[in-house]
Amino acid sequence: MAYQFDFAPVLQHSDLLLTGAAFTLALTAVGAVLGIGLGIVGALCRAWKISPFDRLFGLYVEVIRNTPFLVQLFFIFFGLPSLGVKMTEWHAAVLAMVINLGAYSTEIIRAGIQATPRGQIEAASSLALTRLQTFRHVVLRPALTRVWPALVSQVIIVMLGSSVCSQIAAEELTFAANFIQSRNFRAFETYFVTTAMYFVMALLIRQLLMRLGQRFIVGRPR
């Protein structure tokens, strides 16, 4: 007998799915802002060889990039409490996302910073710009412009990766999906709808971030 697809039992729980999606987006937003911030600091230390932080960030980047996000999450949520660091599932999820994105964006932004032509920094200092001004206007902003598409892709990868946060009972979209399919036994339909939601969210985030980047980093064309 052919299987009868029935999406009604899934759509009946659309409020749960939408709440879950909102939490996924919120997690991603906080994770992205803090993660990219951490990345900027890391990239600065790495590119300008600020000892000993350049070494430390180098080690951090390699450790994070060569271990799975799920294991990082478990280590933070289950492992750290034995050192007395206890946190809620949301804090653990955000922390894991920030640490993960921080490592990738350190490398991405560093590549952008290192592509700054020497002459531009010399030109900036001959115009009597302070070190901070030089960094902000001459180094960081053009660097972010160069690597923005790569950063956006990385934010989306982290958003999609956040689906494993359901495993520490953070009630985001995948958690909602797991809950719904345990109620209606329509596993395939539930995950199908959820996957479609992730897909749409990925598209929207890409559009939004590319526009924001154009507006605030690249600057409006004059």
Binding site: E62, V63, N66, V71, F78, G79, P81, S82
Partner: peptide, 26 residues
């Protein structure tokens, strides 16, 4: 981790395992 109540050690070792596999590839 559930059986030994040593999640810090166990997940640390798990992470090390992935690192040993991935780092040479990187």
């Amino acid at each position: 981790a559930n059986a030994t109540f040593q999640p810090f050690l166990v997940f640390g070792l798990v992470a090390a395992g992935y690192f040993i596999l991935c780092y040479p590839l990187s």
